[in-house]
């Protein structure tokens, strides 16, 4: 399920400053969480897909294929939301369906579709970020632009380098369990016990590595001085500001058009 990874490429979105890109996407997601109509939500998802194809030049069809298994999840979220929606929030609900005491109204369906599409929209923008951002540049940008402490930033970067190693270790542990025949039992309680069986050896191995790395960092005088230099030049350029302005204007234009036609609804209380 490695459906989104960094795709090494050169595109407009790849060149945008990671922190700026992250904050812009978060701001959009935050805005979308207050939108309660499926049309506006879908509009934002479309703009995301447009950016994926035009600005990031990623193979959208391939991405959709990778997302296919998730449709089941999106459908489940939609149906859950439709059923769980509190019909009494409405003044006079337009009842579509009654199952025993459960009423399902037109607003319930709109609510369910909104939530489903919202998660879809989050997925699109998340893929956009992860696929176009080099992880090292991202953490460096957190240090340089968002003032994350360099100690923590470089610690994280060191930890991030362990991911493939730990992944291999995870496989080892898995195989060791298989050989000893402890993998056969299924069931929820067994799954939780398995979490412990995996996390302890993984943690112990990782902590050993961490201690060696920490000693190495200290002995080389890493971060002993306040003003350090950086190999990679991660900063906010003029083109980043240009992108920010254009994208914000596009989002605002979409909102303005949809609001003009009375399509956009804000807050769940507007569903009546």
């Amino acid at each position: 399920m490695q459906f989104f990874d960094y795709v090494e490429k050169d595109s407009v979105l790849h060149r945008i400053n990671p922190s700026l890109k992250l904050l812009l996407i978060m701001a959009l997601m935050f805005t979308v969480t207050f939108v309660y109509d499926p049309y506006t939500t879908f509009g934002f998802a479309l703009l995301g897909m447009l950016q994926l194809t035009v600005l990031a030049r990623l193979p959208v069809l391939k991405i959709f294929k990778m997302m296919l298994p998730l449709t089941l999840m999106l459908a489940a979220i939609t149906i859950t939301s439709i059923i769980a929606f509190d019909v009494s929030l409405e003044q006079d609900p337009v009842v579509v369906l009654t199952i025993g005491n459960f009423l399902i109204s037109w607003a319930s369906i709109m609510f369910g579709l909104t939530i489903g599409l919202r998660i879809f929209c989050f997925l699109i923008y998340s893929i956009m970020f992860v696929a176009t951002t080099d992880p090292t540049d991202f953490i460096l940008s957190l240090i340089l632009q968002l003032r994350l402490s360099p100690k923590i930033g470089f610690g994280t970067l060191a930890g991030y380098r362990f991911v493939p190693l730990l992944g291999a270790e995870y496989q080892n542990i898995h195989q060791a369990h298989m050989i000893r025949g402890s993998e056969q039992r299924q069931g929820p309680l067994q799954r939780i016990k398995r979490l412990k069986r995996y996390s302890v050896p993984l943690l112990v191995g990782a902590i050993r590595k961490a201690q060696r790395v920490a000693i190495a960092m200290d002995s080389k005088g890493f971060l002993a001085y306040r003003d350090r230099t950086y190999l990679r030049d991660v900063r906010i350029k003029r083109s980043d500001i240009f992108y920010l302005v254009i994208i914000l204007l596009t989002y605002l234009l979409l909102l303005a058009i949809l609001t003009h036609y009375g399509i956009t609804l804000w807050g769940y209380r507007s569903l009546r």
């Binding site: 610690g155 060191a158 995996y198 943690l203 990782a206 902590i207 961490a210 201690q211 920490a214 200290d218």
Partner: peptide, 22 residues
Amino acid sequence: YTTMDVVMIAVIGVVFAILFWA
């Protein structure tokens, strides 16, 4: 925080990120 603490926290974060992924 000593360097040891920081790297330790980072590595714990990474290990659990892998477990979260699983």
